[in-house]
């Protein structure tokens, strides 16, 4: 252990790298993420996705994960250990987010749909199709789960778009 003249602890390059990796590993999912096991295929990746904006705006409230959107509860009858209870839902295809908004009672016209990127600075994500395929299951849609770090502001990566049909 080394210290500078002010008795502050100092590190060599290897020590610092190790510390930084550990910090990233602890980075910083919300505490309730201990409820479930993250799918091993979830990773930092940049995907172009669409998000249904429930508030009608691209704001913090439209980009809450399902758990926080439900008032820090899982959905009725849901599984506390299901990782999807804690993710932000997005879609790779415009038509899929539009279908969802057509069918879900939260959304009325006009639909407000935002397009953006799953910037890794905000969290890690996984395409549901890839996930299900890895588990040997069929899945037809383009849904993407995005697990956000604490204090993430994913809305910064998005802007409202017009109909892309």
């Amino acid at each position: 252990m080394c210290y500078d003249k002010n008795e502050n602890q100092i590190y060599d390059g290897d020590e610092l790298s190790s510390i930084m990796k550990k910090e990233q590993a602890e980075k910083k999912f919300p505490s309730y993420f201990t409820n479930f096991e993250m799918p091993k295929w979830a990773r930092e990746q940049e995907l172009e996705v669409y998000r249904a904006c429930a508030t009608g705006k691209v704001d913090h409230e439209s980009f809450l994960n399902s758990y926080e959107e439900n008032g820090f509860q899982i959905s009725a009858g849901g599984d506390k250990k299901n990782p999807q209870e804690y993710s932000l839902s997005t879609y790779l295809k415009f038509k899929d987010v539009k279908r969802f908004m057509t069918m879900d009672s939260r959304f009325g016209i006009p639909f407000v749909i935002a397009k953006g990127i799953t910037n890794p600075v905000h969290g890690i994500c996984l395409e549901t199709r890839e996930w299900k395929r890895n588990l040997g299951m069929k899945y037809k849609g383009s849904h993407v789960d995005w697990w956000l770090y604490t204090d993430a502001e994913p809305c910064r990566e998005f802007e409202v778009i017009e109909n892309e049909n």
Binding site: D96, M103, Y139, K140, H143
Partner: peptide
């Protein structure tokens, strides 16, 4: 016919 995190249609 359509699913999100759960079957929708």
């Amino acid at each position: 016919l359509f699913e999100s995190q759960y079957p929708v249609l």
